[in-house]
Design a protein around this nucleic acid. Structure first.
Lengths: 189, 189
DNA sequence: ATATTTGAGTCAATGACGCTGACCAAACCA
DNA sequence: TGGTTTGGTCAGCGTCATTGACTCAAATAT
């Protein structure tokens, strides 16, 4: 609060108390077009397989943290159980995701990628790698640091915590005991 | 091709030919969480009014470039006419968007915000301004420059061209002649 | 002057992705 | 034993996007 009060806002940055109209409009444009094109590659691959972006998210976070439970995945994605179910069930039945009951708490289902799931995730990953590598190379390392900083700043505290948990070097986590039997609640009554 | 060949990739940046796994995973996380929270504010406001993100996009681009024709808007959003229609029709009927026939080509419909549309767009804008201002202030001006550079790099050439057109200082454009009569093709046969 | 193309709009059907509310079963825990 | 937590299910709704086929008016090309 002791840094002056240039409320009229000048060029980008300064010590802004608020953004000039044009600066925000630019940010809106950048995020709209950038995010759209960032997801376009995987979207196209997924569409061929009758899947969508939601499937990719599950594959991505399971690739990042094998052994996540359903509940943990739900809190990361911040969607409802039913929404996750509509995506997760086909992934399990299609042989992309494996489930293993928790050792400590057998109600939990620890999720992980099967080899087929890893292969698909890898394919989507490589597609996105092209896009991001190009952007990073064009922009340079300093810009990349800035990009990360700003993106993190856009997040709510909840999302920042979720990222910390994901990024943490490690966690005990059940190493996805490949218990072949799904043994789920039972699809048909 | 003359920039060395450090294919093993090192720390962030360098002159990367490809990204280390962890760097890309981080970028994926940042874009997912960041974009989600960036849109969360407006989404909540819109939901109260029975609208969605697609409505916001229309309001945003019309706020930025009053007088856009339907065709121009379609090419910016890169969606189909039918998808736009489902969003645009309620906005027109709800009194948020006005249409004016083109002077040169009377088949065209030049779109602009009504006062009610401007008010709504402003409300969504102010909500997002809070989010982005916070992120920019935390990150600082250098980071903001980097953020912009990277986001632009994520875009396909097509989107970059669209942004240039939007950002261009001006364009002749019909100044949205407030011709009261919609005079549309006729809703009922 | 007729024919084609273009800009806008429409109907019908489909699908992905999110939501709520209600409910059930198994497992854990006090 | 009884309450809570974890995971799963059914039914229904709404948004946002898609394709295909069609109308209509205005502009333009032959």
């Amino acid at each position: 609060m002791s840094e002056g009060a240039d409320t009229r806002g000048g060029a980008a940055g300064r010590n802004l108390l608020f953004l000039r109209e044009e600066e925000l409009r630019l940010a809106q444009d950048l995020l709209f077009f950038g995010y759209r094109d960032f997801t376009a590659g995987p979207d196209a691959i997924l569409a061929e397989m009758g899947m969508g972006r939601a499937h990719h998210r599950v594959l991505h976070f399971l690739g990042r943290r094998p052994g996540l439970t359903v509940g943990e995945l739900l809190s990361i994605l911040a969607i409802t159980k039913q929404s996750l179910s509509r995506v997760l069930t086909p992934l399990v039945e299609g042989g992309f995701v494996a489930q293993a009951p928790g050792r400590a708490d057998r109600r939990q289902r620890h999720l992980s990628l099967t080899p087929a799931g890893e292969a698909l995730e890898r394919r989507l990953f490589e597609r996105q790698r092209e896009t991001v590598t190009r952007a990073y190379r064009e922009a340079g390392p300093v810009a990349v640091e800035g990009f990360r900083h700003v993106m993190r700043g856009l997040m709510e505290p909840e999302a920042r915590r979720a990222m910390e948990r994901l990024g943490a070097p490690d966690r005990p986590s059940v190493r996805a005991v490949p218990l072949g039997k799904p043994g789920l609640g039972g699809k048909a009554p």
